[in-house]
Design a binder for these strands. Structure first.
Length: 463
DNA sequence: TTAGGGTTAG
C-alpha cells in the first residue's frame, strides 16, 4: 500500500514537471506557479527538476533577478539547487552578456559545494567570446577545464569553432576542426557552423568541400545547411540559382520554419522584384505563420522599398499594438527607409532618438546615414558624420569613396582609398577603377599615375 | 552553451 503511494507520488511529480515545462515554454509562468501551489495542496511535492524548469523559464522570459529569487524559494522549501540550477542561471546571465553575474554564480556554486560541469564552462567560454574577451575564453579552455579535471567535448569544439568563424578566423577554425576529427566524430552542427563561416567569408570552394565531407560522414544536410547555401547564392548574386534551390527546398519540405523565405524575400527586395517579394510574404501568412519581429522587419523594408508609406505607418502601429519590441534591424530599416524616400531630416531625428532610447550605436545604421546623406546631396554633412564615426568598415569606406567620386572629389576619394589599402580594409575593385578614371577624366593625369603606383605598391605590400 | 532568417556599399 505504502509502496503504491510512493510510486503514485513519484509519477505525479513527474507529471507536474511535464506540465510546468509546457507552461514555461509558452511563457505562462504565472500558471506554472499556480500549478505548483495546487500540486502542494494535493500532496504532490515539487522537486529540484520542477524548480529548475521554473528558473529556466524566468531566465528566458523575465529576468535573472526573478530567476535567482526562485533559488531562494527552493532552499526555503528544503530543496538543494544542483548544477543544472546554476547552469540555467549562468546561461540566462550569459545570454544577456552579464559577465559579472556569470562569475558571481560560479563563485556561489563553489561556495555551496556544487561543481561546475562541462556545460557551465562551455557557457562561460561562449560568453567571453561574445564579449570579445578571447584571451579569457581560451583560458577557460586550456586552464579552467583542466583544473576542474574535465575534457573538452564536441559541444566545446562547436562553441569554439562558431566563435572563431564569427571573428573571421576561418583558417584557425579549419585547423581546430582537424584536431576535433582526431578526437570525436564531428556533429551535423559542426559542419553547419563551418559551412556558414566559409560562406560568409566567400570561401565557396572550401564550403563545397565541407558539404561533401558532411555527406561522406553519413549525415544528410538539413534546413540549416540548405538555408546557409541559399544565402551564399544570393550574396554572390546568383539569384536564379538561389531561387531554384528554394523551390527544391520547398518540394523537399525544408522551408517549414520560414527561415528560407526571409532570405528569398530579402534578395527579391534588393533586386527590385517587390511583386514577387509580396507574393512570398503572403504565402507565409497563408501557411499560418504568425509575424515575429524578423518578419515585421522584412515587411517594413518591403513597404519602404515600394514607397508604400501608409503601409509603413500601419505596420509600425501593429508592432506596437502587439507589444513587440523594435530591434536594431527595425530602426536601421526606418533610418534607411526615411533616407531613401527623401526624408533626411526625419532620418537624422530618428537616429538621434535611437540614442535617447538607449539603443547603442549601430555601425550599419551609421553606414546608412552616411550613404543616404551623400545620395541626397548633403555630402559635407555626411563627411562630418563620417569623421565622427569611431568604428568604420568596408561598407563605410566603399560608400564614401563612390559618393565622393559622384561629387567629383576624386583627390579626396583617392586619399581615402589609399588609406583603406594601407589599413588592409578590403574594398571592391570597382572603387579603384572609379577613382582612377575620375582623376583622369578631370584632367589630373599626374595624380592618377601617382595614385595608381601607390595603390599597386600598398596592395603588393599587403599580399 | 554551439548552426540557418531580417538592416548598409559597389
Amino acid at each position: 500500500m505504502v509502496r503504491g503511494l510512493v510510486n503514485f507520488t513519484g509519477l505525479s511529480t513527474r507529471l507536474l514537471n511535464i506540465c510546468v515545462d509546457s507552461l514555461c515554454k509558452f511563457r505562462k509562468l504565472e500558471k506554472a506557479e499556480s500549478l505548483i501551489i495546487d500540486g502542494i495542496r494535493l500532496g504532490v511535492d515539487p522537486d529540484v527538476v520542477t524548480y529548475n524548469t521554473l528558473i529556466s523559464g524566468y531566465c528566458r522570459f523575465v529576468g535573472i533577478e526573478e530567476a535567482y529569487a526562485v533559488t531562494r524559494r527552493m532552499r526555503d522549501a528544503g530543496i538543494r539547487p544542483d548544477v543544472a540550477t546554476y547552469n540555467s542561471l549562468i546561461a540566462g546571465a550569459a545570454r544577456r552578456l552579464m559577465l559579472d553575474h556569470v562569475l558571481y554564480l560560479f563563485d556561489e556554486m563553489l561556495e555551496w559545494g556544487i561543481y561546475p560541469d562541462l556545460w557551465s564552462y562551455n557557457t562561460l567560454m561562449c560568453c567571453y567570446f561574445k564579449l570579445g574577451k578571447h584571451e579569457e575564453a581560451f583560458r577557460v579552455l586550456y586552464k579552467d577545464l583542466q583544473l576542474a579535471g574535465l575534457n573538452p567535448g564536441p559541444d566545446t569544439y562547436n562553441v569554439l569553432l562558431d566563435a572563431l568563424c564569427k571573428c573571421g578566423y576561418i583558417d584557425n577554425a579549419l585547423e581546430l576542426f582537424k584536431e576535433m576529427q582526431s578526437r570525436f566524430k564531428p556533429e551535423l552542427m559542426t559542419y553547419n557552423i563551418l559551412i556558414n563561416g566559409l560562406c560568409k567569408s566567400r570561401r565557396v570552394g572550401t564550403a563545397k568541400w565541407m558539404l561533401t565531407e558532411l555527406k561522406k560522414s553519413g549525415y544528410t544536410p538539413n534546413a540549416v545547411t540548405y538555408t546557409t547555401i541559399l544565402k551564399l547564392y544570393f550574396k554572390t548574386r546568383r539569384i536564379r540559382r538561389g531561387l531554384q534551390l528554394f523551390l527544391e527546398m520547398k518540394r523537399e519540405g525544408y522551408t517549414y520554419d520560414g527561415y528560407a523565405y526571409f532570405a528569398v524575400v530579402s534578395a527579391l527586395i534588393k533586386t527590385g522584384r517587390t511583386k514577387e517579394a509580396y507574393e512570398y510574404m503572403q504565402e507565409l501568412v497563408r501557411k499560418g505563420r504568425r509575424h515575429d519581429i524578423v518578419s515585421y522587419n522584412t515587411l517594413l523594408n518591403l513597404y519602404f522599398k515600394d514607397g508604400n508609406l501608409d503601409a509603413v505607418d500601419d505596420l509600425l502601429g501593429e508592432i506596437e499594438r502587439r507589444g513587440m519590441k523594435a530591434d536594431e534591424y527595425t530602426h536601421t530599416i526606418i533610418v534607411n527607409g526615411l533616407l531613401r524616400t527623401g526624408q533626411t531630416r526625419r532620418a537624422e531625428e530618428h537616429f538621434v532618438s535611437m540614442g535617447e532610447m538607449g539603443i547603442g550605436l549601430n555601425l550599419v545604421t551609421c553606414n546608412c546615414l552616411v550613404d543616404g546623406l551623400c545620395k541626397a546631396g548633403h555630402v559635407d554633412r555626411a563627411m562630418r558624420f563620417f569623421e565622427s564615426m569611431q568604428v568604420k568598415d568596408e561598407y563605410t569606406y566603399t560608400s564614401v569613396v563612390h559618393n565622393l567620386c559622384k561629387d567629383m572629389r576624386f583627390v579626396c576619394a583617392s586619399k581615402l582609398l589609399l588609406s583603406c589599402y594601407s589599413k588592409g580594409i578590403k574594398i571592391p575593385t570597382s572603387a579603384r577603377r572609379t577613382v582612377l578614371s575620375g582623376l583622369r577624366m578631370s584632367g589630373c593625369y599626374g595624380e592618377a599615375r601617382k595614385a595608381k603606383a601607390e595603390m599597386k605598391l600598398t596592395l603588393v605590400g599587403n599580399s
